[in-house]
Design a protein around this nucleic acid. Structure first.
Length: 511
RNA sequence: GGCCCAUUCGUCUAUCGGUUAGGACGUGAGAUUUUCAUUCUCAAAAGAGGAGUUCGAUUCUCCUAUGGGCUACCA
């Protein structure tokens, strides 16, 4: 029987989710939606040492901002609850014990200190220590100790872990949806700890396999950093007798640091001049603040679009996709195999595209708070009109103010270069004439202004560039912005006249 | 060191044995424009190297190089 597709995103709350994590969540989400399946959000908080307060809330908020909604999870609930591993702790031990009883795992009494010592000794001799078939016969574990001794130690309260007994020499054949067949010989693997003594919790490996099985996960889509532990996971499914219902695996290529070496990590925070986190994050330990895409003014749709295309491509020249389109198009076959670095410039371009697609009214709503903070009052109609005139010149709403302030306030300063270039010769006198021409316009619309001014320039035979640029200098205060008629219509006749008068009062004409 | 994965313009990528190797970002030039921006046009820019397999390899195989991941009682 074909099982219903069920995927999970399983972050550990050891800090904020970075963009690589968001991308993994996104691909899982897209895959689930595409295949009519469920997307589960499971919190893997089995590392009590590295737990970071606020991280789980951050994950929820980040996914919500991105528009990635879980069908089941800590917040949503579900038939397989609880979805936080720390609340499932009783479950794991019995499974670990099941493996011990079946001979697939064993108790080990070696303390971390002892192991570190052995490790140091090996390294001193130029070797590397691995807890594996070669050495497990000489270490403190239930493989070597009598049953009575093992019981005695456990009852006495000695620290113990449960380790998986990796076969000595076996070719483990695995299949990855993105990479194809991968074969690893078990001799290169070690006896991983499945159940920890330090916090009485399972390690990732055990909890992951048990929960994926219990939650009926059909596809595990995760980062490539997990590929090396795939053989262990295969053996674990086998040892439990769950191979038949084992999920399919897809290991995603990593997101790399923009500057040279290594995969992107949470600790990269803010050091590249662009955010690596979806949302702003303030470290509870250090108070260090890391920027977020949301706070930097990115639209979630643009952020998601950009992220989706980092490592996946539907195979065409199109680059702008809505979430629904991504869902329709998504497939694991088109996920690339090699890691990618992402380009902040391109991210900016994506945002600019989405900014243009927004209606003037929508942008006005976003711009309004900025204006209010500057103490500026303006009608909805005016703000929307301004947004319409400037949106093709910006990538973020935060770019709006510097390029549109003159719509709302009379310029206080006049750009030096423009003054030097235009505020001289016949221009001031012509501007005075223009003032009267403007004053004579009855119906102060863009069309009328445009026609009247141009007719006047033609009639007088004035040099267009000189006149218009002086006009612009007076109204805008700088050499920038949309057409003069557009600007004048928005600021109105009175304000236009005021500005034409003012420049003469404020800026001395160069001899 | 060991094991594993990867390798097309600076960056993200298309190509599923036969193409002048395409697109996008960025860069440069030009055009448009009353300014700036936009827009448009054009340009420079890539199959890591070497062996095979094949009539034919960017595409398949192997070797080398390079990059990356893992090698914790972290995930």
């Amino acid at each position: 029987m074909e099982r219903k597709v069920r995927v999970r995103f399983a972050p550990s709350p050891t800090g904020p989710l970075h963009i690589g994590g968001v991308r993994t969540a996104l691909y899982n989400y897209l895959f689930a939606r595409k295949n009519g399946g469920d997307f589960i959000l499971r919190i893997e908080d089995t590392d009590s040492q590295r737990f970071v307060p606020g991280a789980e809330a951050y994950i929820n908020e980040a996914l919500a901002w991105c528009g990635i909604r879980a069908d089941e999870g800590v917040l949503e609930g579900g038939a397989f609850a609880p979805y936080r591993q720390s609340e499932r702790r009783e479950i794991y031990l019995q499974y670990a014990l099941q493996l011990v009883n079946a001979g697939h795992a064993y108790y080990a009494f070696d303390t971390p200190e002892q192991l570190n010592e052995i490790r140091a000794t090996y390294e001193l001799e130029g070797g590397t220590f691995a807890y594996n078939y070669k050495v497990r016969g000489q270490l403190n574990n239930s493989l070597n100790l009598s049953a009575a001794e093992v019981t005695k130690r456990i009852e006495r309260g000695d620290q113990w872990v449960i380790r998986f007994k990796m076969p000595e020499d076996e070719d483990i054949r695995m299949f990855d949806l993105i990479r194809g067949e991968v074969v690893v010989n078990s001799a290169s693997l070690d006896d991983k700890v499945l159940y920890k003594s330090t916090d009485k919790l399972p390690t990732y490996h055990l909890a992951n396999i048990v929960d994926d099985h219990l939650m009926e996960i059909t596809h595990v889509i995760r980062g490539e950093e997990w590929l090396p532990s795939l053989p262990l996971h295969y053996k674990l499914y086998e040892a439990f007798g769950w191979s038949d219902s084992q999920p399919a695996f897809a290991h995603l290529p990593l997101l790399l640091k923009p500057s040279g070496a290594g995969k992107l990590s949470k600790r990269d925070g803010d050091k590249f001049g662009f955010p690596v986190f979806p949302l702003r994050w303030v470290s509870p330990e250090t108070g260090e603040v890391s920027r977020g895409y949301r706070e930097d003014g990115y639209f979630p749709e643009a952020f998601i679009n950009m992220l989706a295309l980092l490592g996946w491509n539907p195979g065409g020249d199109r680059e702008i996709f809505s979430m629904d389109e991504l869902i329709t198009l998504f497939s694991l076959e088109h996920v690339g195999k090699s890691g990618s670095r992402f380009d902040p410039e391109k991210a900016k371009w994506f945002n600019a595209q989405y900014l243009r697609m927004k209606s003037d009214e929508e942008l006005a709503t976003l711009y309004r708070p900025v204006l209010e903070a500057k103490g500026i009052e303006a009608s909805d109609e005016k703000v929307a009109k301004v947004c319409g005139l400037i949106k093709e010149r910006a990538a973020f709403v935060s770019d709006f103010w510097p390029i549109s302030a003159y719509f709302f306030a009379t310029p206080e300063a006049y750009e030096e270069k423009a003054v030097a270039k235009f505020w001289k010769g016949d221009n001031p006198a012509r501007l005075a004439e223009l003032r009267d021409v403007i004053a004579g316009i009855g119906d102060f619309t863009k069309e009328a202004i445009d026609k009247t001014v141009h007719d006047w320039i033609a009639e007088k035979g004035y040099p267009m560039g000189q006149v218009m640029n002086t006009f612009r200098l007076a109204v805008v205060g700088a050499s920038m912005g949309p057409g003069m008629a557009d600007i004048c219509e928005v600021i109105g006749k009175d304000e236009t006249l005021r500005r034409l008068d003012r420049i003469g009062e404020v800026v001395p004409v160069k001899a």
